[in-house]
Amino acid sequence: MTLRTESRFADPDAAYRLLVEAHRKIDPEHGPALDAALVLLLANHIGDPAVLADAIAVAVKVVSPQRQ
């Protein structure tokens, strides 16, 4: 796996807060579109389809209803 899942932010709380604040500024119905825009921008920033595929695999496990 090439996806890095160790914590990389010096202050993870601040990074988390940026997402919270971004969503507080927009209408909740546009929330999923905001997240989609963030995904596309950050995926492009990473620029590696293998990393994106790894991230998708982890994310699918996290959101699937069965506990692994």
Partner: peptide, 16 residues
Amino acid sequence: NVALGLARGHEVGKRM
């Protein structure tokens, strides 16, 4: 809840 879900096994979630 997603951060908590990630915390089960991934450092990125634990520290959030």
